[in-house]
Amino acid sequence: MPDITWEAPFCATGNSCFRLGTDAEGNGYIAVAGEEDQPLTDSREALRNLILDIKAGKADHLL
């Protein structure tokens, strides 16, 4: 597994906490806090757009 630098967990009221991370090659990762050993991975841009949409309330039902 690549060396991933994780950010602090993002937690919304009543929802699971998620963590975002990146590796040295610029890949982006997202994982449920506490399960960082099983992250989803995609390009940094794809994950950035997903998180921006979630924070904007466009995908609130996904959390």
Rank of each mutant, 00 (worst) to 15 (best):
residue 34 G to Q: 08
residue 13 T to L: 15
residue 46 A to N: 15
residue 35 E to T: 14
residue 3 D to H: 03
residue 51 I to C: 10
residue 29 Y to A: 10
residue 53 D to K: 01
residue 43 S to H: 09
residue 13 T to I: 15
residue 7 E to D: 10
residue 21 G to C: 01
residue 56 A to L: 06
residue 55 K to N: 07
residue 25 E to W: 07
residue 58 K to I: 03
residue 62 L to H: 00
residue 34 G to V: 00
residue 51 I to W: 08
residue 22 T to F: 04
residue 28 G to K: 00
residue 16 S to Q: 14
residue 7 E to A: 13
residue 43 S to N: 01
residue 46 A to I: 10
residue 6 W to H: 02
residue 48 R to Q: 11
residue 34 G to K: 05
residue 7 E to C: 09
residue 23 D to C: 13
residue 40 L to P: 06
residue 41 T to I: 04
residue 50 L to I: 05
residue 30 I to R: 07
residue 33 A to C: 11
residue 8 A to N: 15
residue 19 R to K: 11
residue 54 I to Q: 06
residue 48 R to C: 05
residue 29 Y to Q: 00
residue 44 R to C: 09
residue 26 G to L: 07
residue 60 D to S: 12
residue 47 L to G: 04
residue 55 K to Q: 02
residue 60 D to I: 01
residue 25 E to H: 03
residue 34 G to M: 03
residue 4 I to K: 04
residue 63 L to F: 09
residue 26 G to Q: 05
residue 7 E to Y: 08
residue 7 E to T: 08
residue 57 G to T: 02
residue 54 I to E: 06
residue 5 T to A: 14
residue 5 T to L: 06
residue 37 D to M: 11
residue 23 D to A: 13
residue 48 R to L: 01
residue 23 D to G: 09
residue 33 A to S: 09
residue 55 K to I: 04
residue 27 N to V: 15
residue 56 A to F: 08
residue 44 R to W: 07
residue 41 T to R: 07
residue 47 L to F: 07
residue 37 D to W: 14
residue 52 L to Y: 07
residue 8 A to P: 01
residue 60 D to K: 04
residue 49 N to G: 15
residue 27 N to E: 07
residue 28 G to E: 02
residue 34 G to S: 03
residue 12 A to W: 14
residue 62 L to C: 00
residue 45 E to V: 05
residue 36 E to K: 04
residue 29 Y to M: 06
residue 13 T to S: 15
residue 46 A to P: 12
residue 29 Y to L: 02
residue 46 A to Q: 13
residue 24 A to E: 08
residue 56 A to G: 00
residue 5 T to H: 12
residue 17 C to L: 08
residue 41 T to C: 11
residue 23 D to V: 13
residue 52 L to P: 00
residue 30 I to S: 10
residue 61 H to D: 03
residue 27 N to Y: 07
residue 35 E to M: 14
residue 15 N to S: 14
residue 25 E to T: 03
residue 36 E to V: 04
residue 8 A to V: 02
residue 11 C to V: 12
residue 29 Y to R: 02
residue 32 V to S: 13
residue 51 I to T: 03
residue 59 A to C: 04
residue 33 A to R: 00
residue 29 Y to K: 06
residue 27 N to K: 05
residue 40 L to A: 12
residue 40 L to M: 08
residue 22 T to A: 07
residue 43 S to C: 09
residue 40 L to N: 02
residue 32 V to H: 09
residue 25 E to I: 08
residue 54 I to T: 11
residue 10 F to E: 08
residue 10 F to L: 14
residue 15 N to V: 14
residue 8 A to H: 11
residue 17 C to D: 10
residue 39 P to F: 03
residue 45 E to P: 03
residue 11 C to F: 11
residue 16 S to K: 15
residue 30 I to L: 10
residue 47 L to R: 07
residue 43 S to D: 10
residue 50 L to K: 05
